[in-house]
Design a protein around this nucleic acid. Structure first.
Ligand SMILES: [Mn+2]
Ligand SMILES: [Mn+2]
Ligand SMILES: [Zn+2]
Ligand SMILES: [Zn+2]
Lengths: 137, 137
DNA sequence: GTTTTAAATGCAACCAAGTTGCATTTGTTA
DNA sequence: TAACAAATGCAACTTGGTTGCATTTAAAAC
């Protein structure tokens, strides 16, 4: 892989992405490495609109790779209101909060929903986030 | 309003819809009465696709009236995966389950999510519903 | 009852997030 | 380095929902 792919995280980080992809039998491409670096650096789930300015690839490539990553268990996805799909690395199950005022998305680790007999995938809570409630927005 | 609007629920029911609309200062139209009758008869939230065969109006009228009802507090709405918007009478807050296998939508009254500082609107849980889990779908 | 008026409706065009088909490019393996 | 399958870019497409505007309708004013 190219030197240009070395990130703030250093060479080790780049190697980890490569090994991860190889272990999952996913071809190592510059687009995929760029996406995983971006997702790793992001502290929140991201959607295409948010990051399209920071990636060079076509949106078809973005979405196709998100599907690839999702099927490989590398990331999980959910959709907010406004029909937008959000992606984040990892697949530890937890809920997400989507603010209808500021459109912010937060991971919610603190709640635990149980529904006997059901198999729960994603949980999305809509409402006004703490800072919007405090600010009276 | 027309006699043809008298429903299985009888005259009293029709009067209730009319009074409700009048109380909310919403003009009583045949489209609106038909929609409220259908929502009243439905035991689950409905989306446009599901009911378009049973209503005479254009989809623009359907959606515009749903917005009117929502703003008046007559119904609440949420969107499932697949970008579809569901509507149900009443606005008692409760969660909804959307099955990714059979696309069924269920009201979930049994869970109570608390997020101090946040203002919770709708909660949507995705996964496989009980009958799909049992059937191994 | 008829007229008047603003609001509701139907229609067709539009919108936006995401998907798809296909020619071209790229990564891997031989 | 050659060969080939897989990934990519581009543009066209899909789909659930929205919008502009001419026409119709409900409700109030005569
Ligand atoms: Mn998260
Ligand atoms: Mn419900
Ligand atoms: Zn907010
Ligand atoms: Zn199901």
């Amino acid at each position: 892989m190219r030197l240009s792919c070395i990130s703030n995280f250093g060479y080790t980080f780049v190697m980890n992405i490569e090994s991860l992809l190889k272990k999952k039998n996913i071809k190592v491409t510059t687009a995929r490495v760029a996406l995983l670096k971006l997702l790793e650096a992001a502290s929140k789930p991201v959607c295409y609109e948010e990051i399209k300015g920071r990636i060079a690839m076509d949106k078809a490539t973005f979405y196709r790779n998100m599907i690839t990553f999702e099927e490989a268990g590398i990331l999980n996805a959910f959709e907010s209101h406004s029909k937008m799909r959000y992606f984040e690395l990892g697949h530890t199950p937890h809920a997400h909060f989507v603010c209808t005022a500021c459109n912010g998305v937060e991971c919610i680790e603190s709640i635990d929903v149980q529904l006997p007999g059901y198999e729960i995938g994603t949980i999305v809570i809509h409402g006004r986030c703490r800072s919007c409630v405090e600010a009276g927005v």
